[in-house]
Simulated scan of single mutants.
Amino acid sequence: MWWVYAFFSALFAALTAVFAKVGISNINTNLATGIRTIVIMVMIWMIILSTGETKGISTLSRQNIFFLVISGIATGLSWLFYFKALQLGNVSHVALIDKLSVVLVIILSVLFLGETVNLKTVLGAGLIVAGALVLVWK
């Protein structure tokens, strides 16, 4: 079932890139990121409040809070750089380079989470890197 969620994540990420490219024309990308962030925050809190999921707040540990905060900071920085890249480049190129995050996730998950990789994972990551190199190679 995880792959269904992952597919929808990819679908909405693709829509995000295309919609954002149109939405950031002729405006400051930091302002655009701020507007997008407010929309996301309101939407998520409406879901949390409507489903009664606020009960979990009392069970958060310091570790949960710390890592969620630094994850949020990383997300914010990712969005700021992504929007600037979208403003300056082709959305198809920016999106592919952004997917180098998959390769970085594989490396970081091995180093910090002790996950293992197999040949298919290494080959897939290699193809992502090759695709990114093809785009940036002049």
Rank of each mutant, 00 (worst) to 15 (best):
G52R: 02
F7M: 11
V136Y: 02
V122K: 03
I128T: 03
F12Y: 12
S25P: 00
F8C: 10
S71M: 06
V22H: 12
L88S: 07
S101K: 10
V69C: 08
S50Y: 10
V94M: 06
N28K: 13
G23N: 13
L104N: 09
V102F: 08
N26I: 00
L15Q: 04
V129H: 01
I107K: 06
V22I: 12
A125W: 00
L104G: 15
A13P: 01
S101H: 10
I48D: 04
N64M: 04
V122L: 14
L127H: 00
L86A: 08
R36F: 14
I40P: 00
V69T: 11
Y82N: 11
A14I: 10
F83T: 06
I40H: 09
A20C: 03
N28Y: 10
I107E: 07
L96W: 03
L100C: 08
A32S: 13
Q63C: 00
L15F: 14
I47P: 04
N118T: 04
F8G: 08
W2F: 11
V103E: 01
I27L: 14
L100V: 04
G126V: 03
W79F: 11
S101M: 11
V91G: 02
I57Y: 13
L123I: 15
K21F: 05
A32Y: 15
L96P: 00
V117H: 03
I24S: 09
I27Q: 14
L15P: 00
S109A: 15
F81G: 14
T75G: 08
G56K: 05
R36Y: 13
A32L: 09
L11N: 06
L119G: 01
L80F: 09
L86R: 04
S92C: 03
S9I: 06
N28G: 10
V102R: 00
A10F: 12
V4M: 11
V105N: 09
K99R: 13
G72K: 01
T75V: 07
